[in-house]
Design a protein around this nucleic acid. Structure first.
Length: 215
DNA sequence: TACCAGGTGGGAA
DNA sequence: TTCCCACATGGT
């Protein structure tokens, strides 16, 4: 089944996922930039469940302010304590702080190239694409662990990050909402059904499977 | 108890 | 270039 049809099937099944969740009321009240929350969240969510990221974001909000400025001006030991629920807190605190020293605000990232973003501390391919797509509305498809599994099982396609990224970007319409929703839908589907130990018996899309489940 | 989660970066081969 | 491993908390 072509990617576009898989997207339609997932969308009809689960509806819009509304990524990336940001509390606009909070930012209006504080006068902070919601894009900075997305970027901070993108770094904190690395190899961590979103629930734990929400805990860390709440800790930051309660103690100070969800902004680059707060991260930059806070002592590293305090940052470690606030983001502890996300795991890997030593390296995440260090990289987050370095990132916010390098870029004083989200405004400085508005026109950054993907290549430049990849040079920033704590930013690999997935984080860079998440930032570009969800914070800056740039057409850059995000590939993650779930996507590798999903596209192999449903389309028999394997490859490295950039190969899969090209596949999605070639086959999908150049539509921001499709990019944002498709990535979120794949994650949702993979989290509940297309797990590493798959739950095919309960999966509504099992008839779309193309290959085995050895991924 | 063991595995997995909205990965990255450094070092060895 | 590619592969392997450390990084760490919290849920199932």
């Amino acid at each position: 089944m072509p990617l576009r049809e898989l997207y339609q099937a997932l969308f009809e099944l689960y509806g819009p996922q509304g990524w990336w969740p940001v509390d606009l009321n909070y930012h209006n009240l504080k006068g902070t930039d919601p894009r900075e929350e997305i970027i901070i969240g993108a770094i904190l969510t690395q190899n961590t469940s979103w629930k734990n990221v929400e805990r860390a974001l709440d800790n930051i909000k309660s103690y100070g302010e969800l902004s680059f400025r707060f991260i930059r001006e806070s002592p590293i030991e305090l940052l470690k304590e606030l983001i502890k629920p996300t795991g890997f807190y030593n390296q995440k605190a260090k990289r987050l702080k370095e990132f916010c020293m390098l870029f004083k605000s989200a405004n400085e990232l508005e026109n950054i190239s993907r290549e430049e973003l990849l040079k920033a501390p704590g930013v690999g391919e997935e984080t860079a694409d998440s930032i570009l797509l969800y914070a800056f509305n740039r057409l850059s498809f995000v590939i993650d662990k779930y996507t590798f599994r999903f596209i192999y099982r449903y389309m028999g396609i394997t490859g490295n990050y950039s190969e899969l990224k090209k596949t999605f970007e070639r086959q999908l319409p150049k539509d921001l909402q499709v990019y944002k929703e498709f990535h979120a839908l794949i994650d949702h589907h993979a989290k509940y059904f297309c797990k590493s130990a798959p739950r095919c018996e309960a999966c509504m899309l099992k008839n779309c499977l193309r290959v085995g489940l050895s991924f």
